Amino acid sequence: MSMSNAKQLAITGLPGVGKTTLMLKIVNYLKESCSNIKWCGFVTEEIRDPNNSKERIGFQILTYPRNSRYTLASCDNSAMTRNYPKVGKYNVHVDSVDQCVQELMQYVKRERPQIILVDEIGKMELFSRDFIDFISAYMVNSSVTIICTVAQKCNHKLVELIKTDRKTELITVTKDNRDSLFQDKIEKVLLNCPQTEFEFMTW
């Protein structure tokens, strides 16, 4: 499959506007309506305090198709996490991001999926060198279809490259369009996804 047949979608928008909700719609659609398409990826979930559901204490990564969970960030200030990179009040678990990437790489090598979902490409994930290499190989240089969310306010050079890449359609989620974006934009991409395997990239 050539790059001209691939469709790269980058979904951006303000925090809390509904980017992950849109990605979950894609996950459900792939599970229920696209049994002939091989896919993998991850979404990011909030971790809430079990004693106070209104308080967010971190983030975790949920992978597909294995349904593994990896801690992305936490408010834990133990000796183990004290020297982790920080974003705001959160300590970023770079080792967990690396483990997530290794799981996805193993699946990609074995199954050669047509679609990879990534939620998200943001400040926390970009502390991982493995994550940067993975996204660079498949978002920028590969013919596999990537659907990802990208932080709206992030000056990392990889994020800027994705947003300005001519092969990538950048979609901004707003409160006004978030309920219609799946049907208007994304469903067509999934329906037109090539059924042949992509050329595997090494990195």
Score class of each variant (00 low, 15 high):
residue 89 K to D: 09
residue 35 S to K: 14
residue 64 Y to T: 11
residue 189 V to P: 01
residue 87 V to P: 05
residue 182 F to R: 00
residue 108 V to F: 03
residue 89 K to S: 12
residue 5 N to S: 14
residue 65 P to G: 09
residue 119 D to S: 05
residue 8 Q to N: 11
residue 42 F to L: 10
residue 45 E to I: 07
residue 169 E to C: 08
residue 133 D to G: 15
residue 22 L to P: 04
residue 164 T to M: 05
residue 124 M to H: 11
residue 160 E to Y: 06
residue 155 N to I: 14
residue 145 T to C: 10
residue 156 H to T: 08
residue 145 T to Y: 00
residue 46 E to M: 01
residue 202 T to W: 10
residue 68 S to K: 13
residue 87 V to I: 04
residue 106 Q to H: 10
residue 54 K to W: 00
residue 201 M to N: 13
residue 122 G to M: 01
residue 188 K to L: 07
residue 55 E to P: 07
residue 12 T to I: 08
residue 164 T to A: 09
residue 131 F to I: 15
residue 57 I to V: 12
residue 95 D to S: 12
residue 42 F to Y: 13
residue 156 H to G: 04
residue 196 T to A: 04
residue 74 S to P: 03
residue 37 I to W: 03
residue 131 F to T: 15
residue 166 R to I: 13
residue 38 K to Y: 00
residue 30 L to I: 09
residue 189 V to Q: 02
residue 48 R to M: 15
residue 178 R to Q: 02
residue 133 D to M: 13
residue 157 K to Q: 10
residue 158 L to I: 14
residue 7 K to C: 12
residue 73 A to I: 06
residue 20 T to H: 06
residue 166 R to G: 02
residue 38 K to N: 04
residue 177 N to Y: 07
residue 122 G to F: 03
residue 123 K to I: 00
residue 1 M to A: 12
residue 2 S to K: 12
residue 181 L to T: 08
residue 100 C to L: 14
residue 14 L to C: 10
residue 69 R to T: 10
residue 42 F to P: 06
residue 178 R to V: 12
residue 93 H to P: 02
residue 28 N to I: 08
residue 47 I to A: 01
residue 148 C to L: 02
residue 57 I to M: 07
residue 146 I to H: 04
residue 42 F to V: 05
residue 89 K to F: 08
residue 87 V to R: 03
residue 189 V to D: 03
residue 107 Y to E: 09
residue 118 V to I: 15
residue 76 D to A: 13
residue 129 R to L: 15
residue 108 V to P: 06
residue 157 K to N: 12
residue 35 S to R: 13
residue 32 E to P: 02
residue 150 V to G: 04
residue 113 P to G: 03
residue 3 M to A: 15
residue 125 E to G: 04
residue 101 V to D: 00
residue 166 R to L: 10
residue 41 G to P: 07
residue 93 H to L: 02
residue 81 T to R: 10
residue 178 R to N: 06
residue 119 D to M: 10
residue 142 S to A: 14
residue 105 M to R: 02
residue 76 D to T: 12
residue 25 K to D: 12
residue 175 K to D: 09
residue 167 K to A: 15
residue 168 T to A: 13
residue 6 A to I: 07
residue 111 E to D: 14
residue 74 S to R: 08
residue 138 Y to I: 00
residue 141 N to E: 13
residue 147 I to N: 13
residue 153 K to F: 01
residue 3 M to C: 15
residue 43 V to Q: 05
residue 162 I to E: 07
residue 111 E to H: 11
residue 95 D to P: 00
residue 4 S to L: 14
residue 135 I to E: 10
residue 152 Q to V: 07
residue 130 D to S: 15
residue 103 E to A: 01
residue 125 E to A: 02
residue 190 L to E: 01
residue 120 E to I: 00
residue 174 T to I: 01
residue 24 L to Y: 09
residue 149 T to D: 03
residue 134 F to D: 14
residue 13 G to M: 01
residue 93 H to K: 05
residue 101 V to E: 08
residue 140 V to P: 09
residue 64 Y to I: 02
residue 103 E to F: 08
residue 169 E to W: 02
residue 167 K to Q: 13
residue 147 I to G: 00
residue 100 C to M: 15
residue 153 K to C: 03
residue 69 R to C: 11
residue 100 C to I: 06
residue 183 Q to R: 01
residue 150 V to I: 15
residue 98 D to H: 06
residue 118 V to P: 07
residue 172 T to G: 01
residue 80 M to K: 15
residue 143 S to D: 13
residue 200 F to P: 05
residue 150 V to W: 02
residue 196 T to M: 06
residue 119 D to C: 07
residue 36 N to V: 01
residue 60 Q to R: 10
residue 101 V to Q: 03
